[in-house]
Write a protein that binds this DNA or RNA. Sequence first.
DNA 1: ATATAATTGTTATAGTATAACGTAACATAA
DNA 2: TTATGTTACGTTATACTATAACAATTATAT
Lengths: 169, 169
Amino acid sequence: MKSNSQAKSFPSADHDHRRCVETALKKAESYCTAQGVRLTKLRYRVLELIWANHRPVGAYNLLQQLTLEGHKAAPPTVYRSLEFLLDNGLIHRINSLNAFVGCDHPGLEHAAQFFICSSCGQAAELEDARIESAISGHAKRIGFNIERKSIEISGTCANCIASPSKAKG
Amino acid sequence: MKSNSQAKSFPSADHDHRRCVETALKKAESYCTAQGVRLTKLRYRVLELIWANHRPVGAYNLLQQLTLEGHKAAPPTVYRSLEFLLDNGLIHRINSLNAFVGCDHPGLEHAAQFFICSSCGQAAELEDARIESAISGHAKRIGFNIERKSIEISGTCANCIASPSKAKG
DNA sequence: ATATAATTGTTATAGTATAACGTAACATAA
DNA sequence: TTATGTTACGTTATACTATAACAATTATAT
């Protein structure tokens, strides 16, 4: 039973990940076209590498992959691509891991909340309205003007609780 | 009007910070005694330095201060103290800043939520039951077992919105 | 085609964190 | 008190993460 509605929870081990990638890259392309910004070959490739699975990936890991592909890359190469992708909402940064994960709804205002499984390494992005309103409600109460939110919940996902090693995509 | 009930919001510029420090250090001492762990001179001093104000402080900043005091310190010196303080709930790590801030209620189970002002640099720790239950509620819904939470909201605090430069303690 | 701006290459370095091993301080029991 | 084990700290080296600064290249619009 392959389902691809993993936006609100963790992707199962057997989900059709090619569809995740395909969808994400297509959305990225049309988003960039619409915005008049350039999703260059390098940026596209970095985004693609990040989408290899649902696990946040570090900058130096990406760098290593680019190098293996024959690309003569240095840290700024990948950090610049990451900056572009972040600026355009195509990826998110996971502060608690110093790592980056793909976002499949670029541009849309959303409250990037992450549940991160320390067993399979996967991160699920969600936008729970209750969490969001609880936070903005508190901010309003103390007169705080919110600019950025970093909400990262670590633990064990349902898949891993059920079968502690089937982790994949 | 000096008030010291800043647990739920940002401390005002004129609050009596000595009381914050005094209280925090006393609690730390009795907590460590009760737990049978050793709050050594070094660890105590690091905690004290962290409590210099309500701003998260970086490890290398602490290291520099220790050095200036004549302590022959190297990175592991401070990182080990930080680890002890973290393990015992005497400080929290702010992932988005790679920095550490004092916690005035060690031991108590609490949901470390932080509002961080990018203008005055201060961080207010809180424990909003609504935020907490919104998160644990979502976790329950998706069958996620929470281990650690990192909730960091950046923006501008009420004090700074009112008077953009009075920042202090 | 050429000028301009945007992107990438390249070198160097800053900032954050830990591994590994030796030494010193402390706690406890014989 | 001294031996003994344990915990904490000192010290050196190194790994990991990120950015500054400037040169070369590529894309885009005139």
